[in-house]
Amino acid sequence: MEMTITESGPGTAVLKPVGRLNMASAPHFKEGIRVALGRGFTRIVVDLSEIDFMDSSGLGAIINGLKSAREQGGELRLAAVSWQAGLVLKLTNMDQVLSVHEDARTAFADV
């Protein structure tokens, strides 16, 4: 899995993983969250538009990222969720727990 981290505003970073977010790539994703938080970004947007497969390990990595962000006084939100990732969120009811937005630009528009 490839992933980019870009700044989208003061204190806000967008992580955009590409490919599969699963057991093999979850540690890389968690490291990306750690790097973003280490750089002082407390608002994390995870753009899932280019995730073509996500399993429970990927979902667990996202939840771990939410917990890490909140421990630093921040927040993690999802944006542009692909169909397959959205299905995983819906089947697990995590779409009720995680904040899901249409695109990365508007994920923190309310702040």
Rank of each mutant, 00 (worst) to 15 (best):
F29D: 08
F29Y: 15
F29H: 05
F29R: 09
K30D: 06
K30V: 04
K30I: 01
E31W: 05
E31S: 02
E31D: 11
R34P: 01
R34M: 02
V35Q: 08
V35F: 00
V35A: 13
A36T: 08
A36L: 00
L37W: 07
L37P: 08
L37C: 13
L37G: 01
L37M: 07
G38N: 08
G38Q: 02
G38H: 02
G38Y: 02
R39A: 15
R39P: 04
R39M: 04
G40Q: 08
G40K: 13
G40L: 04
G40W: 06
F41R: 08
F41H: 07
F41W: 09
F41K: 11
F41M: 15
F41C: 10
T42D: 00
T42Y: 09
R43E: 12
I44T: 03
I44F: 13
I44Y: 14
I44G: 13
V45Y: 02
V45H: 14
V46I: 01
D47V: 03
D47H: 03
L48M: 12
S49I: 02
S49F: 00
E50Y: 00
E50N: 13
E50S: 11
D52T: 15
D52L: 13
D52M: 11
F53R: 08
F53E: 00
F53S: 13
F53W: 14
F53Q: 09
M54K: 06
M54T: 04
M54D: 12
M54F: 10
D55Y: 01
D55H: 10
D55S: 13
D55A: 13
S56D: 07
S56L: 09
S56P: 15
S56W: 03
S57L: 05
S57V: 14
S57N: 07
G58W: 12
G58N: 05
G58H: 04
G58M: 07
L59R: 06
L59Y: 07
G60R: 10
A61K: 03
A61Q: 11
A61V: 09
I62A: 01
I63A: 15
N64T: 10
N64D: 15
N64W: 01
N64H: 12
G65K: 13
G65S: 03
G65V: 07
L66P: 04
L66F: 11
K67M: 10
K67P: 03
K67N: 10
K67R: 15
S68D: 02
S68F: 06
A69V: 14
A69M: 12
R70Q: 07
R70M: 00
R70D: 01
R70A: 00
R70S: 04
